[in-house]
């Protein structure tokens, strides 16, 4: 693959942003990431991907997607047990090969691993507030840069989710008569940004059509808001994504017509990597 082609694949940019964030988090910010966890997660994810490639008889081993999944997991998952970190990576990548519907995997890999571990064990959790404003600012810039540099390929999901979720937060503040500082503060959340830019954006687990993706983002944002501000439970977006995932095949069935007319020819050129994302 030429350098030009490399630059076309947005995943290189994603990996660069996530890796620098993990390094920053481990070295400078002390937001609870242990390097041992990072190594365990990356190694397990690549190993399971290798096994999956072999058993699913894929043409070649693709390390990019498992890398993105493991970096997202490293940033979001907190645990003191290395075995749980390894289990998370195995669930994420294994689930991708095992739970499939019409040639697509149903659940976002990192999302499924996070929710499984949070429900199954009280030793795993997500630290959403551990970023600090400086880190948030830098990270927001990097994420927006990602949208610009990759010419916003398939970015509808991210943009729609953020816009809808933000308007719900501002709407709530307006109804309660709260100062704007409160919804602004709620949006400055590292876990929310990772979720919006690196998890819900995954083209393999979102609907095929652009309209479908916007609808999907609206469903996720509504459920996330309900969990967070009506039931007062933490981790609204992460739980909302897994609840909404089964809606993707349904949306794909309903909105298929649009997909074939304008999405497909471009999609081939845009997504040159074959195999399991």
């Amino acid at each position: 693959m030429t350098l030009k082609n490399h630059l076309k694949d947005p995943r290189y940019y994603q990996i660069a942003v996530l890796t620098s964030l993990v390094c920053f988090g481990v070295v400078a910010l002390d937001f609870g990431i242990h390097w041992q966890n990072a190594v365990t997660i990356v190694a397990t994810a690549l190993g399971v991907q290798l096994l999956g490639t072999h058993y699913a008889r894929l043409p070649h081993f693709d390390p990019l997607s498992p890398l993105i999944t493991s970096l997202s997991l490293t940033l979001l998952l907190r645990t003191d047990e290395l075995a749980l970190a390894a289990a998370a990576a195995a669930i994420a990548i294994g689930g991708k090969f095992l739970i499939r519907f019409r040639g697509k995997h149903v659940f976002n890999p990192a999302n499924m691993a996070l929710v499984t571990l949070m429900l199954a064990s009280d030793q795993a959790w997500v630290s959403s507030g551990q970023w600090g404003s400086a880190a948030i600012g830098a990270f927001t810039l990097a994420c927006l840069g990602f949208l610009v540099l990759t010419r916003a390929r398939r970015a509808e999901t991210t943009i729609a989710f953020l816009l809808i979720y933000a308007s719900m937060l501002f709407g709530r503040a307006a109804w309660l008569g709260d100062p704007l500082a409160i919804p602004m503060h709620q949006l400055q959340n590292g876990a929310l940004l990772i979720f919006a830019f690196f998890m819900i954006s995954d083209p393999k687990t979102t609907p095929n059509s652009a309209a479908g993706r916007v609808l999907f983002a609206a469903i996720v944002a509504t459920i996330a808001f309900t969990i967070q501000f009506i039931y007062y439970e933490p981790n609204g977006p992460i739980l909302a994504l897994i609840i909404s995932a089964p809606a993707v095949p349904l949306i794909d069935t309903l909105m298929r017509g649009q997909l074939y007319r304008w999405q497909r020819p471009a999609a081939r050129a845009r997504n040159p990597v074959k195999g399991v994302y």
């Binding site: 002390d30 937001f31 009280d122 030793q123 630290s127 959403s128 507030g129 551990q130 970023w131 600090g132 503060h185 709620q186 959340n189 933490p234």
Partner: peptide
Amino acid sequence: RTGRVETTNYRTVK
């Protein structure tokens, strides 16, 4: 019962 408590909307720093 389970473990350490932290804030989810502000950074908890050691």
